[in-house]
Design a protein around this nucleic acid. Sequence first.
DNA 1: AGTCTAAATGTAGTAAAGTTACAAAAACAA
DNA 2: TTGTTTTTGTAACTTTACTACATTTAGACT
Lengths: 285, 285
Amino acid sequence: MDLINRISSEQSQFSKSERKVAALILHEPEQAIHRSIASLAALAEVSEPTVNRFCRRLGCKGYPDFKLQLAQSLAQGTPFVNRDIEENDNVDQITQKIFDSTLNALSIARQSLDSRPIAATVEAMVSARKIAFFGFGASASVAHDAQNKFARFDTPSVFSDDPLVQRMWAINSEPNDVLVCISHTGRTKALCEIAAIAHDNKATVIGITAPNSPLSENCQFTVSTNVPEDTDQYMPMASRIAQLVLIDAIIAGYTLQRGPKFREKLARVKEGLKGSRYSKQTTTK
Amino acid sequence: MDLINRISSEQSQFSKSERKVAALILHEPEQAIHRSIASLAALAEVSEPTVNRFCRRLGCKGYPDFKLQLAQSLAQGTPFVNRDIEENDNVDQITQKIFDSTLNALSIARQSLDSRPIAATVEAMVSARKIAFFGFGASASVAHDAQNKFARFDTPSVFSDDPLVQRMWAINSEPNDVLVCISHTGRTKALCEIAAIAHDNKATVIGITAPNSPLSENCQFTVSTNVPEDTDQYMPMASRIAQLVLIDAIIAGYTLQRGPKFREKLARVKEGLKGSRYSKQTTTK
DNA sequence: AGTCTAAATGTAGTAAAGTTACAAAAACAA
DNA sequence: TTGTTTTTGTAACTTTACTACATTTAGACT
């Protein structure tokens, strides 16, 4: 754990004078790192050796080492701790906290990724005849996004959040067709049914969902993001962001695997989209 | 800029002996912070004052200050630098890089947010009669996501990526109706037209888009995310993630502003959704 | 309550680290 | 080459941190 957090959590282990030092540092850590041991001791109204002992108790070699670690701890900023939103936070605080939580979740998700199913997904998609992205609720927009990206490619792809459309697609699916099922919980009944149908038809069913879930049992393989408990209790937030980034990674892998000729095509698609936009010159201030 | 980068970029300004010091530090910065000025000088085969002068040239107050800043610079880790994907990266590398770039972009976006238009958006939404989320292409899925969240609320809301549907809505819009236009570039012609129509009808038009863009000129106010140049040259990636998180923040603000009674309602909605899922007990692994 | 013991805190001296002033050496220009 | 400027190092000095020991304080036991 990082030094600042340790100071606040191990307060009980400190002696009375040491707690004075701890309080001072927690109150204004920024200034502490620019003070000498003498001036810090004076400010805390304790003696210099007390400060030194305080540092040692935290496992530092001495005061300079403590300053170094404190500086590092501070440099990490507020290290994207999952900060809960409170009743009377203002909009700025809420925004910062939501961003922090998301950054935190993404950072954790990144560390706990298993690249094998991702590689397998890229592989399956490169050789797919057609690809479908299905999901409901919040996952529908994730599926929507994924399909949107694939619309730039030459492999036919569809998105749907309509159970009947999904069912029809699943019934008509064949080997070499890829079905990507997106669900945070992996427990959405309707989606499990669709996955089962496609699976029976020997289509490649890929789950972007929770491992060991009912949905993942109907999938050839499952790509999952290990996201910490979602900030908002009422709707998925960070988890779907992680799914989106995961899909970005899959797409990047796909694009690369397809080779340089393919990227030329993409450039042409991009060029073609320009007609739908106002050109940059037109921008009047 | 951060200290390590400055050392490597300002090398030309250093004298010969100072360059020795710079080389040593760049080579193994970790060990440098644990050395005294004497031992560092010996290792670099220069005198102590040379090291001290080196520190001052970088704007530090002295050697201890330099160590502090160096430590902070290191603590930020590889601060999610925008790492470009290369031809023969494997899937794991690609995934890590995509996550890194996204984290980097989000982190920058967080720092450069202006909370005023966000607060205004929350305000407008709380008192809205109905809310629409419109966007095309990649922004369509962002709008889709936003509407999905609002579907849990009691204010009527719609999403559309159909220009005709959008136009009809805009024509029928009135004061107190909110239209959220989402576009990364702010130059999508079709969306600008819709925004203009709604604007003429005195609806509250909010842009989640680039500032000073054609779209933003038809918006009452614009919420923008300052995202660094997108990683992927062919499609927006990080930018839309930032937009999504921004929308999360707006929704969190909205939920809070509506008060505790409202959150009871949300809990009921959540409870009601359970029927669509397999319960946790059912999970036979 | 009083005394003993152990822990906590402070004092003062010492060692180490960093800084300054100045002199020597090197690089450059005329 | 010689004078000038810049760079580098030496040595004295100041500041900072640490150690050993003395004092105080708090707690335990009679």
